[in-house]
Write a protein that binds this DNA or RNA. Structure first.
Lengths: 146, 146
DNA sequence: TTACTAAAAGACAAAAAGGTCTTTTAGTAA
DNA sequence: TTACTAAAAGACCTTTTTGTCTTTTAGTAA
């Protein structure tokens, strides 16, 4: 569904938010370990997310990653767009330049319904809403991850 | 949505079927040109499709690609699975090994509805059904392609 | 201010996807 | 059977994605 970078970013952010909710600020190696992702790659991805402004970090002892509580929740669509561009769910499956009701590809009609529901999903859900679900329902992340 | 190989394969097969309906057997260069895809790459992809058994070909003068009319229609899901494996729409967006109602990721519930509708779409539609739509509705393929 | 800790930066490398081109093989038509 | 045509095969290359590692910078705590 998503590429690796997006997948690691998503898992990582949810993990970080979850720890924040528990009053902790995890570091790169902890995040990587818990989400079962390559440590150095995870570090690089988290750095990018900080640079973009999705996430905050503190250096030095006791440092780590955290979300600014003052900021609005981060919708998945923003994360996905940042990591893999808007190609994923906005484009035409057939590869048409301008695929719309005026000039549709043979998949257009049926696929646009699907695309809409995907866009709804990734617009409504946020890193924070997912973390809340994990928290509330005690979903085990580390157990079930690759 | 799909990767390049799948996209070219899909466009190419629909184009071939369309020409077959008109009593023609297009060759690699014609297909590549009409679907706006890299010629050599298109040739390679069509070769693979022949080897898999999705498509037939004839060498020599008057040769080209064609579908065996005796064979059942080719559902998109078969094509997609052959070109990019079953990872695309079957996997968990979160990256869980075993993501199901027993052990769900926080996206599971909402995403499984979407996934189902995608699977329905690509199981119902076939290369032939798409070609028929193009034929009937006179959808212009080449005009609107990249 | 010293020692330690942790993120930031960026060079480097492996693997996969995407794409090009040449040579070979198999067929058709005259 | 010769000339031509078109697919088959496979070597090779480029770009993107994924991943690794070292060095630097910035902070904390004592």
């Amino acid at each position: 569904m998503f590429n690796k970078e997006t997948e690691y970013a998503l898992r990582g952010l949810v993990y970080i938010k979850l720890q924040n909710m528990r009053g902790r600020r995890p570091g790169t190696s902890e995040v990587a370990k818990e989400i079962k992702a390559p440590p150095f790659y995870t570090a690089k991805i988290l750095q990018r997310l900080v640079r973009i402004g999705f996430l905050n970090s503190l250096k030095g002892k006791g440092g780590g990653f955290f979300f600014d509580p003052a900021k609005p929740d981060l919708p998945l669509i923003k994360l996905i767009t940042a990591t893999e561009g808007d190609r994923s769910f906005s484009g035409c499956g057939f590869g048409l330049k301008h695929c719309d009701s005026e000039n549709p590809c043979p998949l257009h009609k049926k696929y646009s319904a699907v695309r809409q529901s995907i866009n709804k999903l990734i617009s409504e859900e946020t890193v924070q809403s997912l973390a809340k679900k994990v928290y509330k329902n005690e979903l085990s992340l580390s157990e079930s991850m690759k």
